[in-house]
Amino acid sequence: MVKIGNIELGSFPLLLAPMEDVSDPPFRAVCKANGADLMYTEFISSEGLIRDAAKSVQKLDIFEYERPIGIQLFGSSIETMASCAEIATKAGPDLIDINYGCPVKQVACRGAGAALLQDIPKMVAMTKAVVDATHLPVTVKTRLGWDDSTKNIEDVAERLQDIGIQALTIHGRTRVQMYKGAADWELISKVKNNPRIKIPIFGNGDIDSPEKAKEYRDRYEVDGIMIGRASIGYPWIFNEIKHYLATGEHLAPPTLQQRLQVCLDHLDFSIRWKGNHGGIVEMRRHYANYFRGMDHFKPFRTRLVTTYEFEEIKGILNEIAAHYAGEPLHA
């Protein structure tokens, strides 16, 4: 049984990665319904939260069905991160996660996210401040290092464990790599198999099929896997991996009707959470992924991303069902 503090996650948990502008409550809802064991909010700017910025505050929204759920924070100021840990704790999550892995310039060039990989003493001090500011378990998501010459994750893991984190997720790339090239799981495995390491170690990077999940579990002996990009438009990947690990067999892929229904459910929740305009606009990034691989889909997608009316979108989805020999939607 893998545990983070007193949170039981099963024998080999599958985690939904925190993804900016993706892993909001509507997206988390469809992933939870399809087998995600632990989820995180989109990362929340500590500076924005301190300023009470509406976007940052809204990201604190969590729901009972999501549990266990973690709130992920990022920032460059130790004092601000500690204060935000207190604010996030009051929102009632099951744990607090710190982002030391985001590679994008808007974050890293401001001294946050993966930038802390260049200043390990500050990373350790910031983590300790967050641990001290909350009674909840604190976890960390990071990368192998800043670049190929500073792959310091083995030392980082020991130091973060020593000051109190209760799980570590490692993305198998450096900051310089961004999302290019293959993720290196060998270093993740070294961290996991370090006899000093007692906390759960989760691997992240390039898991996009049940076969790869099994291969990486067996080869690298991690405690669980975090899945990000492969879940966008395909939340079924969690249950597909679980079924394959348990039986060695593949679940049947989702039917067109299942794709359409989950897409509609996602849209409906998005509108309820962000309002008609915001919900519809946010959903546009997901259509191409929900219907990936369907021939001659572009005209439908163009219509889906240019309308602002829920009933019109529902009508287009029903047209897709009819065009591809599906059944009408029910909502």
Rank of each mutant, 00 (worst) to 15 (best):
E319H: 01
I44P: 00
L117Y: 04
D155K: 15
T142N: 09
Y100H: 13
K128V: 06
Y244K: 12
P235H: 09
A167V: 05
I271C: 11
L136M: 09
W185L: 08
P121S: 10
P328E: 06
D155F: 08
N194A: 07
V281D: 02
E8T: 07
K141W: 04
I4Q: 04
R28G: 11
I237R: 09
G113H: 06
S231C: 14
G228Q: 08
A157T: 11
P103G: 13
T307E: 06
N194V: 10
A108N: 04
V305H: 10
L256I: 14
G10S: 10
G326W: 00
W236L: 00
F300I: 08
E64L: 12
R292C: 01
E47N: 09
G224K: 01
Q161T: 14
P253L: 02
I7A: 10
S270N: 14
L245V: 13
A252R: 10
D162R: 15
Y220T: 01
Y287S: 14
D147T: 09
P121V: 07
K3D: 13
A129Y: 02
A213W: 01
L60T: 12
A252K: 14
P195Q: 02
E240D: 11
I4Y: 05
G101T: 06
T134N: 06
D295I: 00
Q261L: 11
M283F: 03
S209A: 13
D265S: 13
I98A: 04
L264N: 09
A246M: 07
Q58R: 12
G224A: 10
A17S: 15
T139R: 01
L187A: 12
L187H: 13
I227F: 03
T142H: 12
F74L: 11
A288I: 15
S231H: 08
L264C: 08
E79D: 14
S76C: 03
R173Q: 04
I241D: 02
A114G: 12
I280D: 06
R173M: 11
D268A: 11
K298Y: 07
Q177K: 10
P235Y: 01
D162Q: 15
P18G: 14
A88G: 15
Q257P: 03
